[in-house]
Design a protein around this nucleic acid. Structure first.
Length: 535
RNA sequence: UGGGGUAUAGCCAAGAGGUAAGGCAUCGGGUUUUGAUCCCGCUAUUCCCAGGUUCGAAUCCUGGUACCCCUGCCA
């Protein structure tokens, strides 16, 4: 619920007090990777909350570091937000749109003697900064005069110096208890080509310097971000209070979304791709937006999940099964049912000499989804999981199971080869007799030889078996090696009528998406696992 | 005694001095030829701990404890 949280209350209050005419939020991803489920929460908050207030939400690509940012990511980010069904205000913005403005504000700070060019090496800056317990100490360059600062900063801009040799720092307080305030870096030299401004700039503003100014320029009223920026808020305000801006947005923080059995860190995802553990950012096992799209998630199921979560400052780790519940809920209503046998084992029904045609519904609760015909005859397949000596409700010698929509079969003989592998099981067909007292006979799904075709199933499992791979030192070692399994099995012929990307519920198994590939005029059909049914 | 945050059920989460909302999960029951779906019902004498103020405290005060973030020229 998007209303029952502290941010909604703050906005309502501000509006009531006539603080703002219009509410403007923003979503500012860095184009250095694909968007994931964590971003979706932020998107849902920023784009979602303004709908209650008739406000605007701006999409701003935060491109202040040309070392890691790429045009391709911008396109993917835009595509993913659109796919979710959100529209940003007018054309998307870029932090780089304001490079000239940032630069002028930097000059203003220098002129006010609130910023200086430091020439300490990276190592020295680190040393001088001190640590959690020990205060920092001033750089020897801290007190150079304004004209010299102006002169060198201009030279930096023109590209006279190497990366890491000089940077612009705010003159705040090296003895501050908040390390963020120990003369934070405002500008650094980067020689990479920027995907948007090309080679025009040799110096780039840091997050702390650019974010607050961009927010101010865009007249953002509520700048909503995640908890890790709480320490930076004081700097955000310091900068805006010391330059000549006429609008100061307010920053509010919420706790980021963590989900069990998966990773969302861009750095770690990049490592998985590099190690070829996953194919790419859009691997169906990943909770990136594109990965979920490939997997078969619908925008609505993802959004409903995010809306169901609260917005607070408490750390959380949401079980991935809750996300899956929202998916199942939607798929359940719109998917036709079908029977598919993923691990086939052959059954010979000895006393069945004819073909029995059976009309069955495509959805047990929705007649409008129509019906189809299946054929029962002497050669059928069931799943190996349903043939089990130890579990009493499964098929085994002497035991009876119910074939879904057909009759009962009783296992009579197991036929094995020399190596003791089962070739087939001989069964006896029996008519279904209704008894007053409910008999707990297990219903199993099946497929007949004449009414099915062979196909491949791609089965996905969690990328990590452990609940919190983010906490693992060596997360690579915790990878679930069986997160992708390909099985050869059988499915009803009815599947051949399916459209591209159609989703079926395989009875008693789960939801699967059809892949249709046409090679040399031949249709090749396979299926991708989306999510299993509840056990 | 570095600074900034957070503690309410298994997981989320409302609550702001008047006697613990809601959702999901679990559990119990019903419908069902999917152990699915759907429907109904139950689930905190207590809010991290210990004191204190008050007729009355999850809410106020005092003192503790646990966890998260900050020592990038990343964001």
């Amino acid at each position: 619920m998007l209303k029952n949280n502290f941010i909604y209350k703050i906005i309502s209050y501000d509006l009531k007090k006539n603080k703002y005419k219009e509410i403007i939020t923003r979503f500012p991803p860095e184009p250095n990777g694909f968007l994931h489920i964590g971003h979706v929460k932020s998107i849902c908050i920023n784009f979602g909350i303004i709908k209650y207030f008739n406000g605007k939400c701006i999409l701003r690509l935060d491109d202040t570091n040309p070392k890691t940012e790429k045009k391709i990511y911008v396109n993917k980010i835009k595509k993913d937000i659109k796919w979710l069904g959100f529209k940003w205000y007018k054309k998307e913005k870029y932090s780089s749109d304001y490079f000239e403005i940032y630069y002028n504000y930097a000059i203003e700070l220098i002129k006010k003697n609130l910023a200086y060019v430091d020439e300490l090496s990276l190592e020295k800056i680190k040393k001088y900064r001190g640590n959690l317990k020990i205060h920092g100490k001033n750089s020897p360059f801290r007190n150079r005069n304004i004209y010299e600062n102006l002169y060198i900063f201009n030279k930096m801009k023109q590209g006279f110096f190497k990366e890491g040799t000089k940077c612009l720092r705010a003159k705040i307080n090296m003895k501050s208890n908040n390390i963020i305030l120990r003369d934070p870096i405002l500008y650094r030299i980067k020689k990479n080509k920027h995907f948007k401004t090309k080679n025009k700039w040799k110096i780039y503003p840091t997050y702390d310097f650019s974010q607050c100014i961009a927010d101010s320029i865009e007249k953002i009223t509520h700048s909503i971000c995640t908890l890790e920026f709480q320490n930076n808020k004081i700097l955000y305000n310091w900068i805006l209070n010391n330059i000549s801006v006429n609008h100061i947005p307010k920053q509010y923080e919420f706790s980021r979304l963590n989900i069990t059995n998966t990773l969302t860190s861009k750095r770690k995802i990049k490592k998985l791709i590099k190690k070829k553990i996953i194919n790419n950012w859009d691997d169906p096992r990943l909770l990136t937006i594109s990965g979920m799209r490939n997997r078969g998630y619908t925008p609505k199921s993802i959004k409903n999940f995010c809306y169901s979560l609260g917005i607070s400052k408490q750390e959380s780790n949401i079980n991935i099964s809750i996300l899956e519940d929202f998916l199942r809920k939607e798929l359940n209503n719109k998917s036709k049912r079908i029977m598919a046998v993923i691990n086939p084992i052959k059954i010979k029904i000895n006393n069945l000499n004819k073909e029995i045609k059976i009309k069955i519904p495509n959805h047990p609760q929705k007649k409008e989804m129509g019906e189809r015909e299946i054929i029962l005859h002497s050669k059928i397949y069931i799943d190996k999981k349903d043939f089990n000596e130890k579990k009493k409700n499964k098929l085994f010698l002497g035991r009876i199971v119910k074939l879904r929509y057909a009759g009962l079969i009783k296992a009579e003989k197991i036929i094995k080869d020399k190596n003791k592998n089962i070739i087939y099981i001989e069964c006896k067909y029996m008519n279904y007799i209704y008894k007053k007292k409910k008999q707990k006979i297990n219903i199993i799904h099946w497929v007949s030889e004449k009414n099915s075709f062979k196909t491949k199933f791609k089965l996905f499992d969690y990328l990590f078996k452990c609940k919190n791979p983010n906490k693992e030192k060596n997360f690579i070692s915790k990878i679930n090696k069986k997160s992708l399994i390909i099985k050869k099995g059988l499915i009803e012929k009815y599947a051949k009528k399916a459209k591209k990307n159609q989703v079926f519920q395989f009875e008693r198994e789960g939801y699967f998406k059809i892949n249709i590939n046409i090679k040399n005029n031949k249709k090749k059909i396979t299926f991708n696992h989306i999510v299993s049914l509840k056990k």
